[in-house]
């Protein structure tokens, strides 16, 4: 297990290094000079040169890359060209909205998907299974941002149970903050729940054909008892893998949902940065999202190998 973990860790570091080079190179291709952009067209050349030096733009690109990566390793993402404040502070503030939103959506999607998937598997081929599968087929086809708009129309505009947008802030109390994240989390989580319910059902149905399930039935357990006592535990391996992978995509999906609900998260920040050409912010947020995806994949690989020893020997 230690050898396997080290190998995966090496692969994680290599992936992060290559991803950082790709992101840096793409952003470097961007036309225009950030210092000239910040000072406007009437700026004097020596003022622009001074700002370039202040921002560290006057050194060779490879050295800038090393500064950027070295800084990130110490939690320093540089200084925003627009706000003149540390990017790490801006990201930390916004993460307090985006991260809880993604976690809330994940919790919601799991709470819906598990019972739905188990119910469908237990009633394979019957009306209940077909109803759940039909609903998931529809759930997969619904764009989350459109679902969010429909939720706003029903629960904010017509029923007035929730506000149509904005974030109350954690200083207003946990429940007020969570209330403002509820509609966004449902919108983000429901389409994911449809995918997860399908995975849960199919994993359980695969398990039902296994020898140990036949033995459990032969011992006298009913289909449902065998499913709960033996099937569910074994089906959790692929399901947990999908949950891990979904979390990374929920973080990315949160970018769109934040725009529907005007939430002050990473998504809003990155779009403001794109329009104001604050490329250091774009670069850092993209790197953070890619880091989240790679890290979650790494953790899922480790968790999977811990549960299933056969995987360790395969590598």
């Amino acid at each position: 297990m230690v050898r396997y973990s080290l190998k995966r860790l090496l692969s994680l570091i290599l992936s992060l290094a290559i991803a950082s080079v790709v992101i840096f190179c793409v952003i470097e291709v961007a036309p225009g000079d950030p210092a000239s952009f910040m000072l406007g067209i009437n700026a004097q050349p020596d003022t622009v040169a001074a700002l370039r030096a202040e921002l560290g733009l006057d050194v060779p690109k490879w050295l800038r890359y090393l500064h950027w990566v070295g800084g990130m390793l110490q939690g320093d993402f540089g200084t925003s060209y627009t706000y003149h404040t540390p990017v790490s502070g801006m990201i930390a503030d916004r993460l307090w909205v985006s991260l809880p939103l993604a976690l809330y959506a994940l919790a919601f999607s799991t709470l819906i998907a598990f019972p739905a998937g188990i119910y469908a598997a237990a009633r394979r081929g019957k009306a209940g299974d077909m109803a759940v599968m039909g609903a998931t087929q529809l759930g997969v086809a619904i764009p989350n941002f459109w679902f969010a708009m429909v939720m706003v129309l029903i629960f904010a505009i017509n029923l007035r149970w929730f506000s149509a947008g904005g974030f109350a802030g954690w200083d207003k109390g946990f429940f007020a903050a969570m209330k403002s994240l509820t509609l966004p989390a449902i919108s983000l989580g429901l389409p994911q729940a449809a995918i997860l319910a399908r995975v849960m059902r199919s994993a359980l149905l695969d398990i039902l054909g296994e020898d140990f399930m036949r033995t459990a039935r032969a011992k006298g357990l009913t289909r449902r008892q065998a499913l709960w006592r033996h099937g569910l535990r074994n089906a959790m391996i692929p399901v947990l893998t999908i949950i891990g992978l979904q979390f990374a995509f929920l973080m990315a999906g949160a970018i769109i949902i934040e725009n529907v609900f005007y939430l002050p998260g990473l998504g809003r920040m990155v779009f403001q940065a794109i329009s104001s050409r604050d490329l250091i912010v774009v670069e850092s947020v993209v790197m953070l999202l890619v880091f989240a995806v790679i890290l979650v994949n790494f953790l899922v690989d480790l968790a999977y190998a811990a549960v299933d020893p056969r995987l360790r020997s395969r590598t």
């Binding site: 992936s15 290559i18 952003i27 990315a252 999202l289 994949n297």
Partner: peptide
């Protein structure tokens, strides 16, 4: 392939649009 998978299409779009 694993590396490209780490860039959801939305993230790629953000990068391309920024540039």
């Amino acid at each position: 392939n694993d590396l490209v998978f780490a860039f959801p299409s939305l993230v790629i779009a953000i990068l391309i649009t920024a540039v």
